[in-house]
Simulated scan of single mutants.
Amino acid sequence: MTQQFLEPYHFANGLTLRNRVIMSPMTTMTSFYNGMITTDELNYYSARAGGPGLVITGVANVNALGKGFEGELSVASDDMIPGLHRLASAIQQQGARAVLQIFSAGRKSNHQILRGEQPVSASAIAASYPAGSETPRALTEAEIKQLINDFGTATRRAIQAGFDGVELHGANTYLLQQFFSPNANQRTDQWGGSLANRMRLPLAVIDEVQQTIAKYATRPFILGYRVSPEEIETPGIRLADTLAFVAQIKTKIDYLNLSMGSYQRTSLNDKADTEPLLAKFARTLNHAVPLIGIGSVETPADAAAVITGGADFVALGRELLREPQWVQKVAAGDAAEIRTTISPADLDELAIPPVMQVYLQNSFASVMHFTTDQQAATNYQAQLAPMEGFEKKL
Rank of each mutant, 00 (worst) to 15 (best):
V75F: 01
G50M: 04
T57M: 00
F69M: 10
G50E: 02
G35A: 08
G68Q: 04
T57S: 09
E72D: 07
T39R: 11
K67S: 02
A64T: 12
F69S: 03
L42E: 09
G71V: 00
T57A: 00
D40R: 09
A64H: 12
L42W: 06
N61W: 07
L65A: 12
G68S: 05
T38P: 03
P52F: 01
Y44E: 08
G50A: 12
G53N: 04
V75M: 02
G66K: 12
G50V: 01
L54G: 00
A60M: 12
N43L: 12
S74Q: 10
A64W: 02
T38V: 02
S74T: 11
L42T: 04
G51Y: 07
R48G: 01
V75Y: 01
V62I: 14
A76Y: 07
G53D: 07
G71M: 01
E70A: 15
S74H: 09
V59W: 03
S46T: 13
G66D: 10
A49D: 13
E72T: 08
G68L: 03
I37D: 08
I56V: 15
L42R: 10
K67M: 12
V55R: 06
Y44C: 11
L65Q: 14
M36S: 14
L65K: 15
N61L: 06
S46M: 13
G51H: 06
T38M: 00
T38Y: 00
G66R: 08
G53P: 04
S46W: 03
R48A: 05
T39M: 07
Y44M: 08
A47V: 02
L54T: 00
A60W: 07
P52R: 03
S46E: 15
P52L: 05
G66M: 12
A76K: 11
P52E: 06
V55N: 04
L73V: 11
